[in-house]
């Protein structure tokens, strides 16, 4: 039990240290840029294909139920709302947690094991600022973008699936998809991805940066990164959704 509190405290301090370091020079823009490439661009294919497939599958599932109620006109809206509000941010975050989280955990743990982190310090560089902060910032920046791509692909997949079944026109589909849509259905859930990105970056870097168990610690850091960040994303989602509902009562549809 104490172990849990110890862990929570350590992660919390680590997160605060990240936030505190972000706004100090040097800003490590080059590293941030590089890691946006790592976390964002290299996750794009994964996110796009997953989004497309999920879009198709979700329409196949919801369609039956909605047809039963004669509410086929609701299919596009359900699709867009589903992806904008929840599926987009959450699934993108879980995918990135798997790919980038594991990567960060393993890479940093390996750098620790092979004394590369010490070497950076020995060269008078701030290893935390150099290794951790750009990774977290890159996750925070990349995840909302990936979420938008996920949303886009989800709706595209939904459209393709619906088109094969009912030959609906793209224009009508989009009109219906956005009918009655509020900014609060899109902006806060997408910004939610910022928090998810922060969670993924912080947790994975925490495990990677603080592990000091040699080669065997590398695998453990990667596994722990994925498990803990995925879990925290879902827990945070519960709280964030509630906060969004409280802040934008209109979005609780």
């Amino acid at each position: 039990m104490i172990g849990i509190f110890d862990f929570v405290g350590a992660v919390g301090l680590f997160g605060l240290r990240v936030i505190g370091s972000v706004f100090r020079i040097p800003f490590e823009l080059e590293q941030i840029w590089r890691h946006i490439g790592e976390a964002g661009v290299r996750s794009l294919a994964l996110v796009l294909s997953a989004g497309l497939a999920l879009g198709v599958v979700m329409t196949l599932h919801t369609r039956g139920a909605l047809v039963m109620f004669g509410a086929t006109a609701m299919i596009p809206k359900l699709q867009s709302l589903g992806f904008f509000v929840e599926i987009g941010p959450l699934v993108a975050a879980l995918l990135v947690a798997g790919r980038v989280g594991a990567g960060n955990g393993a890479v940093l743990a390996d750098m620790r094991a092979t004394e590369q982190i010490d070497a950076i310090e020995a060269l008078s560089m701030d290893s935390f600022k150099f290794l951790v902060v750009p990774r977290v910032v890159a996750c925070v920046i990349a995840l909302p973008l990936l979420t938008v791509f996920m949303d886009f692909c989800g709706i595209l997949g939904g459209y393709l699936s619906e088109y094969t079944l009912s030959h609906i026109s793209l224009h009508l589909y989009l009109t219906r998809a956005f009918q009655g849509m509020q900014w609060s259905n899109f902006v806060p859930p997408t910004l939610k991805a910022l928090v998810f990105g922060f969670i993924i970056g912080t947790i994975s870097c925490f495990f990677g940066y603080t592990t000091n168990e040699g080669a065997e610690g590398v695998g453990r850091a990667a596994t722990s990164s994925v498990v803990v960040s995925s879990l925290l994303i879902i827990l945070a989602d519960v709280i964030l959704v509630k906060i969004i509902f409280l802040t934008f009562p209109g979005s609780a549809t």
């Binding site: 092979t114 004394e115 590369q116 010490d118 070497a119 020995a122 008078s124």
Partner: peptide
């Protein structure tokens, strides 16, 4: 300050510790 002092020292790590 620490950075300034560290720069006066060089460290050769056991395995080289090059950034891969």
């Amino acid at each position: 300050e620490l950075s300034r002092v560290r720069r006066r020292m060089g460290f050769l790590f056991q395995s080289g510790a090059l950034f891969d």
